[in-house]
Design a protein around this nucleic acid. Sequence first.
DNA 1: CGAAAAATTGAGACTCGTCAACACAGGTGG
DNA 2: CCACCTGTGTTGACGAGTCTCAATTTTTCG
Lengths: 248, 248
Amino acid sequence: MAHDDGIHAAVTCGDCPIRHRAVCARCEGDEIEELEQIKYFRSFEAGQTVIWAGDRMDFVASLISGVATLTQTLEDGRTQMVGLLLPSDFFGRPGRGEAAYNVIATTDIVMCCFRRKPFEEMMERTPHIAQRLLQMTLDELDAAREWMLLLGRKTAREKIASLLSIIARRDASVKRQEAKGRMAFELPLTREAMADYLGLTLETVSRQMSQLKREGVIELEGKRRVIIPDMDVLMTEAGDDSDGGFLV
Amino acid sequence: MAHDDGIHAAVTCGDCPIRHRAVCARCEGDEIEELEQIKYFRSFEAGQTVIWAGDRMDFVASLISGVATLTQTLEDGRTQMVGLLLPSDFFGRPGRGEAAYNVIATTDIVMCCFRRKPFEEMMERTPHIAQRLLQMTLDELDAAREWMLLLGRKTAREKIASLLSIIARRDASVKRQEAKGRMAFELPLTREAMADYLGLTLETVSRQMSQLKREGVIELEGKRRVIIPDMDVLMTEAGDDSDGGFLV
DNA sequence: CGAAAAATTGAGACTCGTCAACACAGGTGG
DNA sequence: CCACCTGTGTTGACGAGTCTCAATTTTTCG
């Protein structure tokens, strides 16, 4: 559906919608111009694989629009999502030549890529990039630890409620609204992707969604549009009020 | 048992046993001297709490010796370990004034602390510190993601085998040995701590340990000393041969 | 030696996974 | 336009794996 609406070809950093949150957020003047030289856009359609774990990877990238996932698998096929990439998130690792995870587009996406070598060289010279990347990595580590609590100790019902409140809050943050009262958003994940996020099976996800619906904690319009009548109720179901440092 | 054998009072950075792996690894000459000025040692006994989540925290630190854990809890007391601190690991976050996790010493420990403000100021001026910290944080993020796969998708038996192989490998790495064939090491964790690491109950941990012992995958001398007759067998039980990027 | 902490083991309950059937939407081609 | 197919989601029946509660043993340490 989302054929790349001009972004692909035309955007300069000055107009970039994720500029203030991305890895380049602290760069200015000359620095941005230098990045502009080495950047290029790539886009993928929903469902496409961006890269497989173990593949050679000589770029790093910021996600400009859409949603992608990082996943890991065991030999027998069991799959766990280990990262959810939303606009402005960074992926790839300076100093590493191959991908550590599978990266899959769950919606149509556009990425802003930098060839790895020039990016690394620039990082050496440009503290603004290294500083911002450190900050983003520390935030991701906090998010990963929150996620570990969810995976290790929450019930299926709490896991679902947690995921919905995470997405609701992130969505509100993008729209610069408060995460309170009645909220509505598009779920960018299939039941299977939700299951891979939460360490559940898709059947359990489906059952718990149905039950939360029956009990009025959530409403569904079609399969993907979710309405939260009362955010506080959902947060209580999630198990931790601590309004979670996740992906702020 | 480990009463602080002089380390506490006397060590200078030149003699520091974790110098080559810690956050200061890339620093030289003047930089080390400056760190030397602002560093101080603290030690805790096994079982003591270093800091509670939410407490004011105006230092960052490297762990010099011993083992400590980072944990998170839900209101009803369910506990999940989200970090395992081994010698040379760093904790605390530049730019954050309060602890995000409970930090508990599981053995006697000695830490090398830096007051946060001077450390932050020095980081601004000293790319060597920021670069090393970024590298360490990226490694931790990889470890956290490996851990998420364990929490979300592995069986109790695989979780135990994974934890044992992680500790065996880390132990070998410190001793500069290969992680192959017959190995032996001290388990620095109680059954409860293992359970908190793995997202299990301590009873399940105990049962699975007994079963692995019955089947000859591991041997136990007392409760804490573990012998791995054949590392390959253990790795197979762990579910992923991928010789795990965990805490290299 | 005795008390407290840690670990083991058992029995039964319950959550969640497995397997299977079915519903629904969207797209394709006759 | 309809038949068909595929991808996605829902629901049910059943069973396996893990948790809970409880009793007992082993280890640690004063």
